[in-house]
């Protein structure tokens, strides 16, 4: 599969590649300090290292992940805010050897790749690994969701449509090390119930199973949106 990638690089787009590659590079370098990016870089590596066969690229027309926030963060495997499954898959490879030159090499090549192609690549990758449709990332996100739901006791003042957004910080073992309110529901009891639901969860053990990069990209810091829909009103 990785052979492909080389093929691509060799493709006509050379000039553009260079230009875009340069820009991406700059972006990457610039944003290196941000944690996500750092985390991201490793995730991407696998791509460059491996050769992807051309077919691997086309065949899988992934539904386009709408948001293309990727550009500079490309290096990051999963910039997608939405739990779009595909990006997540990339990471599995990440931890592999070729860390060093990775970013620069990638930058150029990545610039040349469309999001689709990236998705295809990633898919191909994960396919090889035997990863099924839902990625490990998705599974972990789902277990986090279930855990929090089971610990969330809503106050009687809670109403459907209230929204509180919490920022959650984890360490790789899955321990919750930070909970803060990003957006209050306007109801203190509601906000507190949400925070306590997370605090009471204390640890999401499944997180420990994740590849480093997946963890860094998704779970080092993420958001929980508390938005009841099952209340009487």
């Amino acid at each position: 599969m990785s052979a492909d990638r080389l093929l691509f690089a060799g493709l006509p787009a050379l000039l553009t590649l260079l230009l875009h590659g340069g820009v991406v590079l700059m972006l990457v370098v610039r944003s290196t300090h941000s944690e996500q990016v750092v985390a991201a870089a490793p995730a991407i590596q696998p791509i460059q290292a491996a050769l992807v066969s051309a077919d691997a690229l086309k065949p899988k027309p992934k539904p386009k992940p709408t948001p293309k926030p990727e550009p500079k963060s490309q290096p990051t495997s999963t910039p997608d805010p939405k739990p779009t499954p595909e990006p997540a898959t990339a990471p599995p490879k990440a931890p592999e050897p070729q860390q060093d030159s990775a970013s620069s090499l990638n930058a150029e090549q990545l610039a040349a790749l469309t999001r689709d192609e990236l998705g295809a690549l990633i898919d191909a990758d994960s396919g090889a690994m035997g990863t099924a449709e839902p990625t490990l990332r998705d599974v972990v996100a789902a277990t986090i969701r279930a855990t929090v739901i089971n610990r969330w006791t809503r106050p009687p003042s809670a109403r459907n449509g209230m929204v509180a957004v919490l920022s959650i910080q984890l360490v790789p073992t899955g321990e919750v090390v930070g909970v803060s309110v990003l957006q209050s529901s306007g109801n203190n009891a509601f906000d507190r119930s949400a925070m306590n639901a997370v605090e009471r969860s204390a640890r999401f053990p499944d997180v420990a199973k994740l590849e480093n990069a997946v963890f860094e990209d998704n779970f080092r810091r993420f958001q929980l949106i508390f938005k009841p829909e099952d209340l009487r009103y």
């Binding site: 941000s34 805010p81 939405k82 969701r145 739901i149 969330w152 810091r221 993420f222 009841p228 829909e229």
Partner: peptide, 19 residues
């Protein structure tokens, strides 16, 4: 891709049920 705002979007998980 290059034009898109670089803002990093965090993973979001929605909790819409409780006990």
């Amino acid at each position: 891709l290059l034009c898109v705002a670089p803002a990093w979007a965090e993973l979001q998980i929605e909790i819409n049920q409780g006990v």
